[in-house]
């Protein structure tokens, strides 16, 4: 029975991580905008949902949705100035924004400062998470097969050509970013009501990197890949910890190596058999096209 509960718990965490990975994949994999603050949006969702439930006694589902909406709002606010520029700025700006948020969470009274918030009711279970995963993936797929999703991919493929096709690239990038933040906010709420305790460090830079690793491992721009990446990187540390507790110290070292090695050896990730987006532009092709 205890065993069973443990497996269910791991499965639930996998579900939450799947939502995080597919939502970051929307921003970085499909739209090609690297975000290093994805966990921040998760945190905004978690804190908002928790505070609503604890202080205002709002029921679970509305808290969750409002938390996600708040995360989306912040995604929009941070996206507007940064997404007008080349994608690299977004990486730093999201990183910086994440640190500012952490700073605020650490200093505000209402968020409990570094102590975080305790006594959150345990509502999240495997069924709720499974339902959330289904809803997220279903809506995401609908978006991706539509005109909107095609515009995201077009921006990743060639921003200038996308503009020439009449796509307001800035607005669409902000849109992708906002939707991604919304989903991450849902994951955050689920996280809070699962572990019953949150603090600013749950949603820091390292968590953002962990999510990025899931996406990169599974394959950028590939929803199935993101799901696989999330599952692998949730189970693997659990497994290693059962082998030797010492190994978990090396986890972040491993993540760092993973990112570098994947980019060099298999940039398209585990799942994708076609070289998606990260194709190397061969010399002949370049010469043939007469451009750079």
């Amino acid at each position: 029975m205890k065993r069973m509960n443990y497996y269910l718990q791991v499965l639930t965490v996998i579900g939450i991580n799947i939502i995080l990975a597919v939502s970051l994949n929307l921003v970085s994999g499909f739209t090609g905008q690297l975000s290093l603050g994805h966990a921040t949006f998760m945190g905004i969702g978690a804190y908002t949902a928790t505070l609503l439930a604890l202080k205002l006694h709002v029921p679970f589902i509305p808290s969750l949705i409002f938390g996600a909406a708040m995360a989306a709002f912040f995604g929009f606010i941070i996206g507007v100035p940064t997404l007008r520029l080349k994608g690299d700025y977004l990486a730093i700006a999201t990183l910086g924004f994440g640190e500012i948020m952490k700073n605020i969470l650490l200093n505000l009274k209402i968020t409990g400062g570094p102590m975080g918030l305790r006594g959150i009711p345990k509502v999240t279970n495997i069924y709720i998470v499974a339902a959330a995963v289904v809803v997220v993936i279903f809506t995401l797929n609908r978006i991706m097969i539509s005109r909107v999703g095609k515009s995201f991919i077009a921006i990743r493929e060639d921003e200038l050509a996308a503009e020439a096709m009449g796509i307001n690239t800035t607005n669409y990038k902000i849109l992708a970013f906002t939707i991604g933040a919304f989903y991450a906010g849902i994951a955050g709420g689920l996280f809070a009501f699962l572990f019953r305790y949150i603090n600013p460090n749950n949603f820091g830079f390292m968590k953002s990197i962990e999510i990025l690793c899931m996406v990169v491992l599974g394959g950028m721009g590939n929803t199935a890949g993101a799901i696989l990446g999330a599952a692998l990187l949730t189970v693997l540390p659990e497994f290693l910890r059962s082998v030797s507790p010492l190994i978990s110290q090396y986890r972040m070292v491993f993540y760092g190596l993973l990112l570098v090695v994947m980019m060099i050896v298999r940039p398209q990730g585990l799942l994708s058999n076609t070289s998606f987006y990260f194709r190397r532009i061969s010399v002949e092709k370049n010469a043939g096209k007469g451009g750079r």
Partner: peptide, 27 residues
């Protein structure tokens, strides 16, 4: 090795190096 790859690949590699070095130093 990533000089001919798309923009985002070396950026991710750079983040990987940063995470690796930081945590190796921690150890």
């Amino acid at each position: 090795p990533l000089r001919k790859a798309t923009r985002i690949a070396p950026l991710i590699s750079a983040i990987g190096v940063s995470i690796f070095l930081q945590n190796a130093a921690l150890l």
